[in-house]
Structures are given as C-alpha cells and as structure tokens.
Amino acid sequence: MIVILTFFALVFGLFCGLSGTESEIIRFISKNSDMILYILMFSVGISIGMHNGILKKIRQYHLKILIIPLGITAGSILGGLLCSLILKLPLNQGAAVASGMGWYSLAGVTISRLGGAELGSIAFMSNLMREFFSFFLIPIIAAKLNYCTCIAPAAATSEDTTLPVLLKYTDEETVVLSVLNGMLCSFFVPILITFFFHI
C-alpha cells in the first residue's frame, strides 16, 4: 500500500510540475518542504522515544554500528567502478557519481561543477532513482533478507525521506541504526565526491 501511494505521489507531483498547474496548495507544499521534513523528523523521534530501552540496545553494538555505513560506502564505490568499466568512463568519475549514495541534490550540483553538466545530470538522476527505488526495495529486503540490510539501498537518505518506510517495515532498533547510518553516509558524500575528482 505504502509503495503504491509513494508512486502515485511522485507521478502526481511530476504531472503538476510538467503541466505547470498553479494552485495555492501546491505552492504551499513546495515552499514548505523543509518544514514538512522537520515535522517528519519530529514524528520519527516520537516513534523512537516510545520504544523503551532502545538506546541501551544500540549502545551494545559498539563499533559494530559502523559496519552498515562502511558496507554501503564500499559497495557504492565498487558499484560505481563497475559502472565506469561497463560505460567506458574514467574510474574516478564513476566512483564519484556512486558516492552520492542517494543524496541527489548535493551530488548533482557538486558533480556538475566538478565534472560537467552531463555527469552532473547522471549523478542527479541515478541518486534520485536510488532514493525512489528504495521505497520499493525496503519491503522486499525486510521480507527476504534482514532488517539491517534494508538500510543499504536507502544509504544517505536513511536519516530522512526513507526513514518512515524503514519504520514501517523494520523495527525501532533498525530505525536508530538508520539515523546513525544516514548521518555518517551524509558526512562521507561531499568528502568522497571531492576526493574522487582530485585523484
């Protein structure tokens, strides 16, 4: 159900954007998307807070907590290198595009500036697809693999937009791991993109 609603929300949004439909509600939503994100984070915070003993459980992980962001980062970079080989692009460019890890706005803008408009567009769209397809992949991974792996497609977006889907299909413990993962991946994104353009 959630996946269908997500799909329709995107399609309806695209339709409104492409057709140039102007209405107070659409303008209000677009203008206040930051505020909506804050309400979302507040609500996610409440869900975490209502779950007793969760922070104690998380503390038990110690350094193991780094496994998920490191796995996602390494997997993304390796995937980017494989794409470069397939598409015959310079390896550093492929690694930089994949280092966006779903943060399409930042990756698109930064890579456009560092690697040109075409590569910037690829970075924007591929990372946007990563965020969007995460909504579909998370329920499948939760059912077939394990809860922690649900964070992998979401990558840097696991601390905001994809978090409610993770909350719905996994548990509160995984949600806290998602937030930490999102913070770390988001921290790595600009560093890795810049790094790959300077080697």
């Binding site: 609603l5 997500t6 949004g13 954007g17 057709s19 994100l37 979302l40």
Partner: peptide
Amino acid sequence: CTLLLIFSMGVMLG
C-alpha cells in the same frame, strides 16, 4: 509527511 515530500520532489522535477 513522506507523501507530501515525495509529491514536492515530483513537482520540483517536473
């Protein structure tokens, strides 16, 4: 909130 964010992402893309 998630649906509204995705909707506004669609509008922005469009």
